[in-house]
Write a protein that binds this DNA or RNA. Structure first.
Lengths: 245, 245
DNA sequence: GCGATAAGGACGGACCATCAGACCTTTATC
DNA sequence: GATAAAGGTCTGATGGTCCGTCCTTATCGC
């Protein structure tokens, strides 16, 4: 009946359509989400998470599943729990040492940077359209604070993440906030491999300034260009360190 | 011991971190992936899918799980199977009528467009850096073909999708190809709600031309601007049709 | 001091998605 | 008629998830 000789080979992008479907379990995704937020400093050391019975409701999972994740993050040293009234689950202070990036992440570093470029440039453009002055004031304050952290990379990086995520929040797009958080999480492993002398951080922070200035005067094109340039910095360093493509 | 009064409220972006974790099952994701590819025309009507035993290996799932998805897509009219040697699973021809976009999609249309902007502009910038001339030749041919489809929107839209996905492929970034496919799938429901007179399609296709020209001369900034403008067209129409934010 | 309360911690049963594999049925080709 | 290649069917095992219940610990208020 169907005479077509199945020219499936002629269809491009099949690798994408038929690529393995890796569905994370609720447990895995929870570990990933919380672990990333902690490593990025979005959940800073010492802070208390919501109570388990409350948090599992927010996350939409069963408490036993959430506990699996909390126990896992406890064993890896990211969380610790105290019992009794007034107790709770706290982000560990200090945090465990960062683990070196996985082989898979290193192999796909270019891909990671590409997605990051898209997310960040898109955020820059939209922020230039929509960011409220009040939100920009907060971000300006962050840039000033960053100037005082040029000598200590760990602190700088955390504030840097907050700046970029804050920019995403200023767009008012929840999905871009999620995307930004994820890409920042993916980049962290790579970024920690690079040496960050104060001069480089200073230069990067000047880019922050120009970026925010462009956003404040609603100049989306310049904002996009500044952001792209800002990202190219780290990308070029990575290109020198890591296997080509 | 822990004196900190848990200033968790001070931490922004908590809605993102503690948002519900909805992990799709392998079955659901498979239906989604194949269904989207079919609706976008990436798997055109009449084409034969790989044999079940082969496809489940590619997708990394059990055959029974794959069959659930194939049966579901069969019942919805997207696929039909024939038995025996030389049989197989084929994309239905004609395709079932498109279902109206879900309430949830309509409510979050702005968010969908925002993510689309990021992906497409990022793709435009990277394509301007990396696209091989041969790939651009293919895309130019698509634009020419599009000129002949101005009167028939369904055909136009399918070729349009192939153009945008092809652009993503030209960047060499698998994740951007996936992201592009997903955003195109998400946009399709919205786009079908808009009237598309030939003049509008003609104008859109002229934007395609300018975009490809900018990419060919490696002008990333212009490519990004052209792409953003191209997307704004549909966005403004949607803004007029749909509830504000 | 004692009860109430709010937190983490542990357990058991039920359900369901998924996997792995064997087997059946249909159909075309040699 | 045998073989091969495809979809269709069935079953048991496994594991993730949910729900509810109960226990333990620690603080707060009377």
């Amino acid at each position: 009946m169907r005479a077509s000789p199945s020219a499936l080979e002629s269809v491009a992008s099949l690798e994408t359509i038929f690529a393995p479907v890796q569905s994370l379990t609720a447990f895995e995704e929870t570990v990933d989400r919380l672990g990333t937020a902690i490593r990025l400093g979005l959940l800073p050391p010492g802070i208390r998470l919501p109570a388990e019975r409350e948090l599992c409701a927010k996350l939409g999972i069963a408490r036993s599943t959430l506990r699996q994740a909390l126990v896992a993050l406890g064993q890896s040293g990211h969380l610790h729990a105290t019992r009794g009234r007034g107790g709770g689950t706290f982000v560990a202070d200090p945090q465990p040492p960062a683990t070196p990036p996985s082989h898979a992440l290193l192999a796909a570093w270019r891909d990671t940077c590409d997605e990051r470029l898209a997310v960040e440039v898109g955020v820059a453009m939209l922020a230039a359209e929509r960011a409220q002055p009040a939100a920009l004031d907060d971000l300006d304050a962050l840039v000033i604070a960053l100037d005082g952290m040029l000598a200590e990379f760990a602190a700088y990086r955390q504030a840097d993440v907050r700046l970029h995520v804050g920019l995403a929040e200023a767009t008012g797009s929840p999905r871009l906030v999620t995307a930004m958080t994820e890409t920042q999480g993916a980049m962290t492993g790579l970024i920690t491999m690079i040496a960050h002398p104060p001069e480089v951080l200073d230069s990067a922070n000047r880019q922050h300034r120009r970026l925010l200035a462009a956003i404040r005067r609603r100049d989306g094109a310049t904002a996009a260009r500044e952001m792209a340039e800002h990202l190219r910095g780290t990308e070029h360093v990575l290109a020198g360190l890591l296997p080509a493509v």
